[in-house]
Nucleic acid binder design. Sequence first.
DNA 1: AAATCCCGCCATTAG
DNA 2: CTAATGGCGGGATTT
Length: 230
Amino acid sequence: MQDSDFLYQLDAAVLDAHSQRKSAENFASSIKKFIAYVEENSNSTCSLIHLCKEFHFQRRRFYDVINVLEALNFCKKTGVDEMVWYGRANFKKMLLQIKKSSIKEENNFDQCISISVLTVRFIKSFFTFNSQTINIKDIGNYLSRENGRTKTTTCKLYQIAHILEAASVVEKTIMPGEISLPEEYFRIEETQPKIPFTIEQLLNTPAPIKSMQQDSVLLDVDDLASHLAA
DNA sequence: AAATCCCGCCATTAG
DNA sequence: CTAATGGCGGGATTT
């Protein structure tokens, strides 16, 4: 007997055909459980299909979750049916990077709307507009201004927001369509631990750490800090 | 009616 | 070729 039966469809329908009716509740809770689990086994590779089954995700949905999480560096696909979970600390580094990049306004004439790219632009919007709360509808219009595909873009933004809310990186407001980025993340720079540099250390630093690099390069403050600590 | 987001067809890519 | 991946957006549900 083949495994192909697992392939296309779903399973989920059979499982909760009678029990739970709140499918949205299931999706969100699956994400939470999945993250809680993988958070404990950080830095070790795991099988996507296993996780998918384990937490009762519909295959197609699981790819969505992985893609938005990977776009924010929570994890990374390391091969076919394989990924590594890095966690929130790594996400914060990405957040800082996104914040830095929010300064420049790039022209995106992208034809394809990938959920990964949209995820980053979505988060980037908080910084671009320097607002802790943004409206999905507005951002949808904004991000689709070049391609006119507002419907698809907005649908995806709802999808992304839903996943990110379950992942606790974003929160819904009482206002319809309003999404907020928690202080902790919105003020990412301020919450970065102060590096206890001493005059001596700074004087002994050979050359300017951040010379003329591409601003796309992630300057790892944590690594620098631990390096000096050693 | 408007806001949400479920759902899965099928094109694309990897092996 | 088969299996893994994910673009895309219609339309069912909630609010």
